[in-house]
Design a binder for these strands. Structure first.
Length: 224
DNA sequence: AAGAGTACCAACCGCCACTTC
DNA sequence: GGAAGTGGCGGTTGGTACTCT
């Protein structure tokens, strides 16, 4: 097999999409779906690479995309999940229906990150600052993948919290770093829904929970 | 009014993980 | 088991809109 480059240099268009291209892509996907992104542009008659088509569809053309400003609630979710997961935008996006990883990433870099930096400078005590404490510690609890992808897990719920019995959920890409990220822990029920709770005492319990879970899995030799 | 600086966001790039052969 | 194909992710860039001087 010869590996073909993602975008053949010849004849493939780059840059902003035109309304005509959008229309072609939408109608093609509505008609045939997107079984194979690399083959799609050819089938649809687009001079774009498959990756570009996929990105355009996922980030802009998908019918369930939610446009407009992020709500306070969404901001809070992003901040807390970022505190736990780090820059795993796609995972965070699964908890924000209608929002794309790209949108969340942009929002983080253009709004939240700056706000966090400002609030840190002002020394104010609010949730943003708390999250900043998590982020600036450079911590990332990768086992939290299990929280976010709980719907895929073979799992059981204890007191509304989740136990994961599927180490396939655990990222191999990023080795686990256990640190202050526990502080911003978000818990989830068995269906993967986030249980929102800003109470410090509960956060403390969650820290303990996640810490114990990490230690248990570590001792059992679960790869994380 | 115009140029400079800044903010925002769509899109690209390179890498990695999973799947298929 | 390993090589190749493919999809997906995160980092980054570049263009445009907006604000300030």
């Amino acid at each position: 097999m010869v590996k073909t480059p993602c975008c053949e240099k010849m004849g493939l268009k780059k840059g902003p999409w035109t309304p005509e291209e959008d229309q072609i892509l939408i109608s093609h996907i509505q008609q045939y779906g997107h079984g194979n992104w690399r083959a799609l542009p050819k089938q649809a008659g687009l001079s774009r690479c498959g990756k570009s088509c996929r990105l355009r569809w996922i980030n802009y053309l998908r019918p369930d995309i939610k446009r407009g400003r992020f709500s306070k609630e969404e901001e809070e979710i992003i901040i807390k999940l970022h505190g736990i997961l780090g820059n795993r935008w796609a995972t965070i996006a699964t908890r924000l229906p209608g929002r794309t990883d790209n949108e969340i990433k942009n929002f983080w870099h253009t709004h939240l990150k700056k706000r966090l930096e400002r609030s840190e400078l002002q020394g104010s005590s609010n949730s943003l600052q708390e999250a900043q404490a998590v982020c600036s510690a450079g911590s990332s609890i990768n086992m939290a993948q299990g929280v976010v992808d709980a719907s895929d897990a073979t799992s059981s719920s204890v007191d509304g919290k989740l136990l994961i019995a599927n180490d396939s959920l655990l990222s191999r890409k990023n080795p686990p770093i256990v640190g202050l990220g526990f502080y911003g822990a978000v818990s989830s029920d068995i269906s993967g829904q986030i249980i929102r709770n800003n109470s410090h005492s509960v956060i403390g319990e969650e820290m303990e929970f996640w810490y114990n879970m990490f230690m248990n899995s570590h001792h059992k030799g679960i790869k994380m």
